[in-house]
């Protein structure tokens, strides 16, 4: 296999990078880890004229807590950076765990959180848990920057609201009232498998009552999605096994999976039921795991 020819640029600042992107428009692509991009290019699905590498833009690296904003994750942080981040381990182990169950170690060492989001693959593992935790993304363009909820970022498979001159620079997980969160991935192999379904939840429990719940599903619709009806169904109600099962059934009814080589629509729907219930139970009982 081979990569088509392209021009390679490795600017030293975000501003410069955005200017290059603005100049080339859709003929340019951002290169972060490349674990997905290289494969798409080898398959001939993408043939950009220019790759703009983020490797020299140091402000995109790093994960830290910023008072008033929350946990700020640089877009170039690799999956293993997430897994090993002390801040995340302390506050949202669920994010570390979601990153840990992606792909395999070699890919986790190179693939980035920014890439995982911007590629907008419906089965991506990080978006559901980040959406459940209310995360926002910061997009920097040639003419300024904007921040928006991750939930409104995706518009379809491989599609999002990002402009051709924009770079996703940060992911921000705001301070939570939630008491627990988790991501459960159901894949057909324990390593190196895409999610057949992925279910993330964040719950706020007090006195045995679900004050608030967010349920985000992956791999069961064109974009990562919230199961809002299921959330509504359980909001404010006392936690029981029956309630959580009902939430699962409801979430299964809300999603719209396709049938493909990894699973039928029917199977995926039922797995949404099972894993929504299990994820809720885990987050309720164990906190952010």
């Amino acid at each position: 296999m081979y990569l088509p020819d392209f021009d390679y640029q490795s600017p030293g600042s975000l501003k410069e990078a955005c200017q290059i992107l603005a100049a080339f428009g859709s003929r340019a692509r951002v290169l972060a880890g490349g674990t997905d991009l290289m494969i798409k290019m080898k398959h001939g699905l993408l043939a950009p004229d220019v790759l703009v590498s983020l490797k020299n833009i140091s402000q995109l690296a790093g994960i830290g807590y910023v008072q008033g904003r929350g946990v700020v994750i640089g877009a170039r942080a690799t999956h293993n950076d997430l897994v090993n981040s002390p801040v995340l381990q302390k506050k949202y182990l669920s994010v570390c765990e979601a990153a840990h169950h992606m792909a395999n170690n070699q890919i986790r060492n190179v693939g980035t959180v920014g890439g995982n989001i911007v590629n907008a693959v419906p089965s991506a593992d990080l978006p559901p848990i980040l959406i459940a935790l209310n995360a926002a993304v910061k997009l920097v363009g040639a003419d300024g920057e904007r921040e928006l909820p991750l939930e409104s970022f995706f518009t379809g498979p491989n599609r999002s609201v990002i402009g051709t001159d924009e770079i996703l620079s940060e992911i921000v997980i705001p301070d939570q009232t939630s008491t627990g969160s988790t991501y459960m991935k159901f894949g057909l192999r324990r390593s190196g498998a895409l999610a057949v379904v992925g279910v993330a939840v964040a719950v706020t429990v007090a006195g045995g009552v679900l004050k608030e719940a967010k349920i985000a599903l992956g791999a069961v619709s064109p974009t990562p999605m919230r199961a809002v009806k299921a959330e509504e169904l359980i909001r404010g109600r006392a936690v029981t096994d029956e309630l959580l099962e009902e939430a699962g059934v409801c979430a299964a009814g809300e999603c719209s999976p396709i049938s493909d080589i990894r699973g039928s629509k029917e199977y995926r729907q039922d797995m949404v039921r099972v894993f929504t219930r299990r994820a809720l139970r885990r987050a309720i009982n164990e906190g952010h795991v």
Binding site: M1, Y8, S10, L31, G34, T35, M38, I39, K42, L51, S53, K55, N80, A103, N104, N105, Q106, I107, N109, V110, G192
Partner: peptide, 25 residues
């Protein structure tokens, strides 16, 4: 395609698939 790990090398001490890393990177 990054699936098998035969091309694994250590890049700054970390294992990576050298089939999906550009030489310029």
């Amino acid at each position: 395609l990054g699936d098998c790990g035969s091309c694994t090398v250590l890049l700054d001490g970390k294992p990576v698939n050298s089939c999906t890393v550009l030489a310029v990177e």
